[in-house]
Nucleic acid binder design. Structure first.
Lengths: 212, 212
DNA sequence: TTCACGATACCACTTTAGGGGTATGCGCTC
DNA sequence: GAGCGCATACCCCTAAAGTGGTATCGTGAA
């Protein structure tokens, strides 16, 4: 029986995955937490064979939890379980030490296989992202030739999200508790980084790249 | 026993939710489909009391499935089950006739309550989005039925395409061999028809609707 | 310990968008 | 033939975006 810890902010998803595994599947979700910050204390209390981790979570994201674990010397294999098919997330996860990467639209059989492999400290990649892995490995001859989107900071992406919702600089400033000047500076930097002429093109580009 | 059909492209989520409901919960997911286009044929084969529907799906989105059902005269209460907290999605869902709206980070208890209410053709809204519903109802005296995009003329869609490419009014005027004044008039009319505040929101909305 | 970067903030300025009108000609329909 | 939607075009004006700088502070890397 593989004992797994699930880290996901979506309660429904978590309870769903837990109920999905029957005793004879050989897998048991022994604990679910919606807050990645609790992972170290949980690991000190109970013993698990692997961790199933969502990437996008509000308080601390999956990569952040991986870093937190590493800083505390916690060595438990982690399977990233996410909707993001972007190379950005995959790369970040692998760089930070994830053992595998699977998409949320995987089947139960695929998830079972992934959990088994990761718990044995083998790598697992979902078939859907294999091509991207190859493309990425082929493309890493020239690291500067990355995606323009990768140059954006988290704050800048946050600003982009607000812009897409139709908020103007003043509204964004109030929402983020910063000055309107700062928002305008961010907008300028974003436009330079993405090499776009105006807000319309910025929104188009960002939506195509999945930032919005 | 409430018999539910689940429409979600994320297999894991679907199987998870299905396993979550035990016989004594009074709810059974009798069928899961990852393709919304199959909903009409499924409804003709099996009998269900309600439909649990994800909004963002690749082949046809949740709102599209609702429209498809309506066009075929299929009258089964639908609970939208999604991650999107945006009023835009909520509005579209309600306009197209969804009976309820719940977020994917809801608890099992909340989902159970929602399914029960919707199967009785009562409305259900997740507590987290109640405020947005109120704001919406306050702001909309005139509930416009039908899709806003349908009101756009071909010329207006052409203008929208240019805006999305980052062209300003002057550039659009030159490209279409018309006056800049005319372009500005078009932009104004477009924004009124789509009920958006500015160009950024216009682009976001248009891309979601597939105009761009 | 520098040094780079991100987030913050401000000034001054030009260009563009956005909102209020009004108007004409064309094609279609009732 | 009167009305309607659409594309066209112009006026005036305000608000916002966009461009050119500069600058402080904290953090983390070299």
């Amino acid at each position: 029986m593989i004992r797994a810890l699930l880290v996901d902010d979506h309660q429904l998803f978590g309870e769903g995955v837990r109920s999905m595994f029957k005793p004879n599947d050989g897998i048991e979700i022994v604990k679910i937490t919606t807050n990645g910050n609790n992972v170290p204390s949980i690991l000190s209390e109970i013993e698990v064979d692997m961790i199933l981790m969502d990437i996008s979570m509000p308080l601390i994201d999956g990569v952040g939890v991986l870093e937190l674990m590493k800083s505390k010397g916690l060595d438990v294999p982690v399977l990233m379980l996410t909707m993001h098919q972007d190379m950005k997330y995959i790369r970040k996860s692998l760089e930070t030490g994830a053992q595998g990467y699977i998409l949320k639209d995987a089947s139960k059989a695929e998830l079972t296989e992934a959990i088994e492999k990761v718990s044995r400290r083998e790598n697992y990649f979902h078939p859907k992202i294999n091509n991207q892995i190859f493309d990425y490995l082929r493309g890493t001859k020239n690291p500067s030739q990355g995606d323009l989107v990768d140059q954006l900071s988290d704050r800048e992406k946050e600003i982009i999200g607000c812009i897409g919702k139709g908020m103007n600089s003043k509204a964004i400033a109030e929402a983020l508790f910063i000055s309107e000047h700062t928002v305008k500076t961010h907008r300028r930097n974003i436009m330079h980084k993405l090499a776009v002429k105006n807000t319309a093109e910025l929104v188009t580009y960002s939506m195509e790249k999945g930032i919005i």
